[in-house]
Simulated scan of single mutants.
Amino acid sequence: MLSGAVTNRYTQGLFKFAEQQQAVDKVDESLKLLADVLGAHPKLQDILNHPLIDADSKANAITNVFGEALDPLVARFVKVLLNRGRGGYIAAIYERFHALAQAAKGELTVEVQSAMPLAEEQLQEIEKHLSASLNKKVRASLHVDPDLIAGCRIRVGDRVIDATIRGALAQFSQKLVSGATKEGTL
C-alpha cells in the first residue's frame, strides 16, 4: 500500500526543485511519459518493484527504455526513488506533481463521465461553467460509461457532481428504503 505522506514528501521536493530550475513543464511531461509507459507495461513496473533486483539494474532498465526522452532531472529523481525502494510511487508522484503544476498555473482538470459521447461544444460548455464557478481554467477529460444510463457525473478532486439517471435511481431507492423503516410505513 502506497503512503500518501511519502508521495507528498517526494512530490513536494521535486516540485520545489523544478520551480527553482524553471523546469516544471518539462518535468511534468517527463513524469507523464514515465507513468504512462509504466501503466501500459506492467512488467516494467514489476521490475522496478522487485526486491531482488538492485537499484542500479533498475535505473539501467529505465535508461535503456527511455534514453534521452526523460528530462535529466526526472532521470536523477527516479534513481533516487529506486535507491530508496520507492519505484512503485512513480505514478502517484506524477499525479500529485501534475496537480501541483496545474494549480501553479491556475488550471484544473476535471473528469467528466457521460453515458454517451458528448459533442465538443457540450464539453466546452461544461468547462466554461466550471471555470466560472471555480475561478480556474478547467480542462475536462471525458470518459464514456454506458452504465450511467443517461446524464453525466463530474469529478472535481474529491467532490462529485452526479447528474446521472443511475445516480438519481440510487438516491430514490435509498429514500424508499429509509422511508420504509420509519414507524407507520409499509
Rank of each mutant, 00 (worst) to 15 (best):
D28A: 05
A59D: 06
D162F: 01
L130V: 06
H98D: 02
L52T: 15
V78C: 04
R84E: 09
A40H: 11
S178N: 13
K16H: 12
A99I: 00
F77L: 04
T164P: 04
V160K: 10
L142Q: 12
H143I: 15
L33N: 00
A170V: 13
G179F: 07
M1K: 13
D36M: 04
P51R: 10
R86E: 06
V37W: 03
G13R: 04
T63H: 07
P42S: 14
A163Y: 15
F66A: 02
R159F: 12
H143K: 15
A99L: 08
L33F: 04
S114I: 04
T181C: 08
L81Y: 01
Y10N: 03
D28Y: 07
A101K: 05
L52Q: 12
Q20C: 08
I161V: 13
L38S: 02
R153Q: 14
R9M: 12
L176N: 09
V78K: 00
Q21S: 10
H50Q: 08
P51D: 11
I90A: 03
V110S: 05
V80M: 02
I165Q: 08
M1E: 11
A23I: 07
F77S: 03
E183S: 15
A119R: 11
K58Y: 06
H143Y: 08
T164L: 07
S114P: 03
T164S: 14
L148T: 11
I62G: 01
V24H: 01
R96G: 00
M116P: 10
A163N: 15
V65T: 12
L38T: 02
D54K: 11
V80P: 11
R76I: 07
S131P: 02
V138M: 04
E95R: 02
R166W: 10
G179T: 06
H98S: 09
L2N: 15
H50K: 04
A163S: 15
S131R: 03
A59H: 04
Y94D: 07
V112C: 07
L130R: 03
S3R: 06
A40N: 13
K136H: 03
L82R: 01
R159Q: 15
Y89I: 05
L14G: 00
S57H: 12
G157T: 01
V6G: 01
L134K: 12
A23V: 06
Q20W: 08
K105P: 07
R153S: 09
A150V: 12
I90S: 00
E95H: 04
R96L: 00
V74Q: 00
R159P: 11
V6N: 02
L82P: 02
A103F: 01
L70V: 03
L118G: 07
M116S: 14
A170Q: 13
K137A: 11
I149A: 09
G179V: 06
A132H: 08
I165E: 10
P146I: 08
G167V: 11
L48D: 00
G87E: 00
G179N: 12
Q12N: 15
A103E: 10
A35I: 03
K26V: 09
Q171C: 09
A92I: 02
A104S: 10
K16Y: 07
L169C: 05
V24I: 11
D145N: 14
L70F: 03
P117R: 05
V112Y: 05
I62P: 02
L31R: 02
I62N: 01
L130F: 08
C152P: 08
E127F: 04
L34F: 05
F77V: 03
K182H: 12
I93C: 00
E121G: 06
F172E: 09
F66T: 03
N83S: 11
A163R: 14
Q21R: 14
